[in-house]
Amino acid sequence: MASYSANSREEGRAPLPMENRERDWWLMPLLTVVVLTLFGIYTTFRAFENNYYHYTNNGADYLSPFYSPLLPIAWYLHLPLFGLKMVSPAIYILIFPLAFRLTCYYYRKAYYRSFFWDPPACAVAEPRADARMKYTGERKFPFILQNLHRYAFYAAVVIVIILWKDTVDAFIWTNPDGTHHFGIGVGSIVFLVNIILLSLYTFSCHSWRHFIGGKHNCYSCSCGTRSSYGIWKKVSFLNHNHALWAWVSMLSVWFTDFYVMAVASGMFKDIRIL
């Protein structure tokens, strides 16, 4: 082994003050905790509520993304999940987007920082000194499962396809005679914006970026890799703002469900634009 004369004093780190950063470092983690917690509470409530998720008045067809696709009642009633019976179908559906977001490379950063304080912010000391040597990162269970993010992505793609269908449905209105016509309500717009944002989030995924081209070392070497280069470049462009898509798509899903709940429960009325 080559040696470097720099005197190795690996043990003796400087007795520096622990805390040094400006006072505002906790703003981001706090914001993350508040928003994610609120979203969690809302989602849990709505998932168990099992009501007001499908608005069909006046020929509309707004199906909340929390409850799409509509599962046959018999199906979910008799499928035990964690010993729970008689729960809402949303449980079976939400588990997939939840897994996608939970293993997402962006959300991981967000919750490792704000919930686990690993680290709370850059160059801010982690408070749990006793846990210092126990840290294993993503090498041990359960965090080693993060390596399977791609499977959550595959499921998320299926969900996105289903939600695109729901969005199309949100533009198709049923006449009293059973025929259909094209129309736009405020809800339709909400659905459209939501699915666009969800698609941006889903297809800016790091695993997808790897799958579609990141795994290649030589793009110019074959026809196939050359075309995957083009897609990879575009995905990379989207990926650059993955965190942004993660936040806005989460808010839009929440708002879409809220909108459906509101119009279905009569909190306010959906307005027809066309």
Binding site: Y105, R108, K109, Y112, R113, D118, P119, C122, A123, Y135, T136, G137, E138, R139, F143, I144
Partner: peptide, 10 residues
């Protein structure tokens, strides 16, 4: 030890 990285991006 790439598994130690928890991509907190500092």
């Amino acid at each position: 030890g790439i598994g130690y990285c928890n991509i907190t991006k500092c």
